[in-house]
Every structure is written in structure tokens, then in C-alpha cells.
């Protein structure tokens, strides 16, 4: 098991002994005259989970898609593991997004191949990086279905036959099978029943800890970030209005917008 080692790596990272995995500086993206996001800067360290919250249109999804390479920002710099992502050849960037990076979509249909079996969905990234042994691929797919709590005998079923929560867990397995270091998540619990959300949150927390994942998670659900994110960034109108330790931002918000956001959440 590599878990203690991963945790050690995290411990080193939070003591500053490890360099940031992702460094973002002055990132901006406009759609004509309308600002998508602007002046976004942050560092993300190994093993760290950064939550980005804000209302619809606040620029959080634009920011995520710029970070993940789905859109090209107009300005700014993104360094991954010291390499300039925006200057990278497309081959290299796409290779990263198949190996070191992962992207979990809000709608699992956007992240899954609905026409092939669960096993093929999980195996795809392995085959993309050159796995050519059917038995090994299948064994790894079986292992990952187990880790996301999908019964192994569903391995040959297509995702269309799965519930929404199972599809989302399958999407996570499909993304994590190559042991990525950086995971982007776009509202991963949106559209799921509350009971299913809890299971997914528990699963994600365990995977983040055990695999030492760095995560950027975009959501409008403050409860989700409180449980998952180490740090929080609050966005409004394309700008970061406040960032800090998650519980501090939620319990002692400094910016007017964050205060409004926090006080607007219904208590149960």
C-alpha cells in the first residue's frame, strides 16, 4: 500500500517542502465584452482540495474549463508541475488530460461513453496509454468498480442501465484508473439525491486522501465544500472576491457577497 507514503507527501507539501502542483497567475477569459473570469491567481499543492463557489454566471465554470484546457484563456499563466500548460504542444496537453489529469463532469453522460460497457469505460484510459493485455485491463476495471462500490457482475453492462449515482461513480472510476494527480470536478454531486450525494462525498474524500489527489472542485453547494475542500475561493462576476481556509471563509466571511451567500443557505 502506498497510502502512508502519499500522506507523508502531503505532510511535506503542507510544510512547504513540496512545490505547488498547479500555479495559476493572472488568468482571464472574456466572451467579447463580457468577462468570463479575470485576475484569478492561486497555487494548488499536492493532496490539496480547492473549492470554488459562486452563483451561476460567477465565472467558476469558465475558470474550470480554462484550467482543464477545454478553453484557452486570453491572459495569464498556468504551470502544472513547473511546465507551462498554455505553451505546451497539444499532443502533450492531451496526453496529460488522459494520464495525470482527470475531469469529472456534472452530467455523467458527458464523461462516459454510453455505447460501451462499464468495463470498457474504465479500461479506456488504460488502453489509451498503451495497455494491451485484456486480462490485466479487466482485472483493473473490476478492482476500480469495487472501489467505487459497483458490483463486479455489472462490468459488462452499459452505463445506460445504471442509476444516476452509479453513473457518477463509474465516471469517477473511469477517471481515476490511471492514478491521476490532478482532478477537476464540475458540480459532481449536482442532480443527485441527497442520500446518493453523501455516499459520493464519502467516496471522494477517501480517494482524495488515499491517492493523495489534488482537486479543484466547482460547486454551488456550500455543504459539499465544507466537507471536501481544504481551501475555498468565492467568485462573483468573474472575480475572486475572497479566498482562504474553507471553514474560516464559511464561518467568518469577510466580503459582503460571501456573507450574503453564507447567510442565504437554508439551515436544516
Amino acid at each position: 500500500m502506498t497510502q502512508p507514503q502519499k500522506a507523508t507527501e502531503f505532510s511535506q507539501s503542507i510544510r512547504g517542502a513540496v512545490a505547488p502542483l498547479l500555479q495559476v497567475a493572472g488568468l482571464a477569459k472574456s466572451y467579447g465584452a463580457r468577462i468570463g473570469c479575470t485576475d484569478v491567481s492561486f497555487d494548488l499543492f499536492p493532496g490539496e482540495v480547492l473549492g470554488i463557489v459562486g452563483e451561476s454566471g460567477s465565472g467558476k465554470s469558465t475558470l474550470l474549463s480554462c484550467l482543464a484546457g477545454h478553453q484557452r484563456p486570453d491572459q495569464g499563466q498556468i504551470l502544472y508541475d513547473g511546465q507551462d500548460v498554455l505553451a505546451m504542444a497539444e499532443t502533450e496537453r492531451r496526453r496529460l488530460s488522459r494520464t495525470d489529469w482527470a475531469f469529472v463532469h456534472q452530467n455523467p453522460r458527458d464523461g462516459l461513453r454510453m455505447g460501451v460497457s462499464a468495463g470498457a469505460n474504465v479500461g479506456e484510459r488504460l488502453m489509451a496509454i498503451g495497455a494491451r493485455h485484456y486480462g490485466d485491463i479487466r482485472a483493473q476495471a473490476t478492482d476500480w468498480l469495487g472501489r467505487v462500490e459497483i458490483d463486479a457482475n455489472r462490468i459488462d453492462d452499459r452505463p445506460a442501465a445504471f442509476s444516476g449515482g452509479m453513473q457518477q461513480r463509474l465516471q469517477i472510476a473511469r477517471n481515476l484508473v490511471t492514478a491521476p494527480r490532478l482532478v477537476f470536478m464540475d458540480e459532481p454531486t449536482g442532480g443527485l439525491d441527497v442520500s446518493v450525494q453523501a455516499r459520493l462525498l464519502d467516496l471522494m474524500r477517501g480517494l482524495v486522501r488515499d491517492m493523495g489527489l489534488s482537486v479543484v472542485i466547482v460547486t454551488h453547494d456550500l455543504a459539499v465544500v465544507r466537507l471536501l475542500a481544504h481551501r475555498l475561493m468565492v467568485m462573483k462576476s468573474g472575480r475572486v472576491v475572497e479566498q482562504g481556509l474553507t471553514d474560516q471563509v464559511l464561518d467568518d466571511p469577510q466580503h459582503a457577497y460571501t456573507q450574503l451567500l453564507v447567510s442565504s443557505v437554508l439551515q436544516v
Binding site: 468495463g119 470498457a120 479506456e124 488502453m127
Partner: peptide, 14 residues
């Protein structure tokens, strides 16, 4: 990026 071709063959075997 030819991983998909093997996905097709994988499905065949599965």
C-alpha cells in the same frame, strides 16, 4: 490517440 480501437476490441471479447 488510438486507445478507442482497443475499446472496440475489448467490447468484443467482453
Amino acid at each position: 490517440e488510438y486507445g478507442l480501437m482497443h475499446v472496440k476490441l475489448y467490447e468484443d471479447i467482453a
